[in-house]
Amino acid sequence: MNLVRAEWERLATRRFMRLMLVLLVLAFAVTAVTTLVGSHRPSPDEIVAAQQSAAQQRQALEDTFQQCLAAVRGTLPPEEAQDYPPNCSVFDPGQRDRLPVAADHLQGVFTFADQARPLLYFLVAFLVLFGFLVGASYIGADLSTGGVVNLLIWRPRRLAVLGAKLGTLLGALTLLSVLASAAYLGVFWLIGQGAGLPGATGGDFWPGLGLIWLRGLVLVLLAAAAGFALATLGRRTAAALGAVTAYAVVWELGLRVVVEVVGLPRGEDWMLSTYLDAWLTGQARLSDATACRGVSGYCDGNYQIGWGLGLAVLLTLVGVLTMAAFGAFRRRDLS
């Protein structure tokens, strides 16, 4: 317990941690202020006009879908029917992520319900970066400056010391994520109430937002553990940054180009970003151009990867890295 307390204090007073917190607050403040400045409370006339536009757009979508169905049934003239595919699900308004709403037609009005998700994704992205960098630098700096050696002379239990560091890091990030998310969404909710529109926050809005937040939190913790493990394996912060940069350049960019040139089926399956997307958004929607080779009829080559597989891949990767880091740290000579 004392070790965790000491690590907590050490983490809280790290200069890099404080710098990242300042950046977080700055990014937060800039986003909030620009939103506030660029938004106004709409007049009743603006709202009515926007509602009408949205209604017209929804009707147009419904009309297109009905036309498609008529084309499939053969009740449409051939010259019009040729514009529609045999499968009308792409036009089905019921299968869209969301239908047009009045807020889509209000210029310069911040609508909380519409913007909450992208704002949350932005926060999650920042926290993931934050978690990775802080995780890597926290142990990397300790290893390269001899701080860990100092500690091990006091507490010669390597796994307990490393475990306390990782546990403290993940605990601190969880707390920070909870506080930052609450403050962040709270401020934008207030902006929506006072200088924009709250939007449709009923139904499954809050549970849906909560689910995204939960997924984001898991991702933040996984990123922190990955940064921590890579820096432990490489004995310094730069090792973690180098590993991620090398992966991004060689694998995500290089291999992607090779896969496209060679025409490998389902090349996206080999990319970590696919599983990140699947976990965070609930489902990665992908397209495989090679799936339609030799198909004469309609073929879009689309396929999905669910959040379950995404989480399994991410957990396995981070789990293997973390176990390797603890194994290496237990055995290695420390200087």
Binding site: L3, A6, E9, R10, N150, L151, W154, R155
Partner: peptide
């Protein structure tokens, strides 16, 4: 020193 003292009990 305080952090070391804490860690070492």
């Amino acid at each position: 020193l305080r952090l070391l003292a804490l860690a070492g009990g």
